[in-house]
Design a protein around this nucleic acid. Sequence first.
DNA 1: CCAATAGATGAGAAGCTTTTGCATTCACTC
DNA 2: GAGTGAATGCAAAAGCTTCTCATCTATTGG
Lengths: 140, 140
Amino acid sequence: MEDQEIRNAGLKVTAPRVKILELLENSDERHVSAEDVYKMLLAANEDIGLATVYRVLTQFEEAGLVEKHHFEDGYSVFELNKGKHHDHIVCITCGRVEEFVDETIEQRQQKIADELGFQISEHDLVIYGKCMDDNCDRKG
Amino acid sequence: MEDQEIRNAGLKVTAPRVKILELLENSDERHVSAEDVYKMLLAANEDIGLATVYRVLTQFEEAGLVEKHHFEDGYSVFELNKGKHHDHIVCITCGRVEEFVDETIEQRQQKIADELGFQISEHDLVIYGKCMDDNCDRKG
DNA sequence: CCAATAGATGAGAAGCTTTTGCATTCACTC
DNA sequence: GAGTGAATGCAAAAGCTTCTCATCTATTGG
Ligand SMILES: [Mn+2]
Ligand SMILES: [Mn+2]
Ligand SMILES: [Zn+2]
Ligand SMILES: [Zn+2]
């Protein structure tokens, strides 16, 4: 299970790491902040410090288990790396996050980078807008 | 000159605001951080506090004189609003920033938002890569 | 199974960018 | 020119993230 993924990442199999990975795998929310993770751990009566949450998430990111994004809000959000690249659209009212992939956009970016003489290492595309979810206005 | 732009923004014409606006208009670097602006002011022997720089840039942004971006680095960068939307490609080695516009990408984003039921308010697309500038490796 | 050790952890301090509180100063109106 | 609400500088504080350090633990190999 999680143990092997952690070991493969060159990390010791410790309770915090296992719990955090489990949590990411089972959470309803794919996109969570370090604080979110910390609070979920508290709610689950796990005695894990916030510093450890940050450390572990960073290590997971370095190991490619997790991806980190900046949805302009002043903090980072993490999600399990599911192998295939995607971009995000975020509701400015309720915070809902949807994912999408658009091959045309990907190709165009490559073209632009070529023309400007850049070798792409990564990119961030986030669309912000208001969603039509039924309880959009009711959420935080 | 600048005075009128400031007045039109509903702000009093004060030395800090005029200096900052001049600086943004004359700087070689289009994309500058608050700290950059502050240092430039210091270099020009202007006695303006960093808090004021932040306040003024924020007011300029609210007035539409300036745009604020987050090139993932932990701080914000500002640029004079030149009216037409564009996206950015940033060199991860030397920090050079190039601008581009791609109608196809813009349209595709609209399509995606439509399909997912979002009304776009804005978007951020930043491509990161290594540039082929002659002194790319020599810069900070 | 145990001892040795490199690595991991929690708590709090510290770091960085950005914001805020407040006393003082200033721009604009009459 | 006086009056007033806005603007400023400084220092303090906030908010997120990282670091320090003393303590603890997973792993290894004897
Ligand atoms: Mn995602
Ligand atoms: Mn720009
Ligand atoms: Zn919504
Ligand atoms: Zn470069």
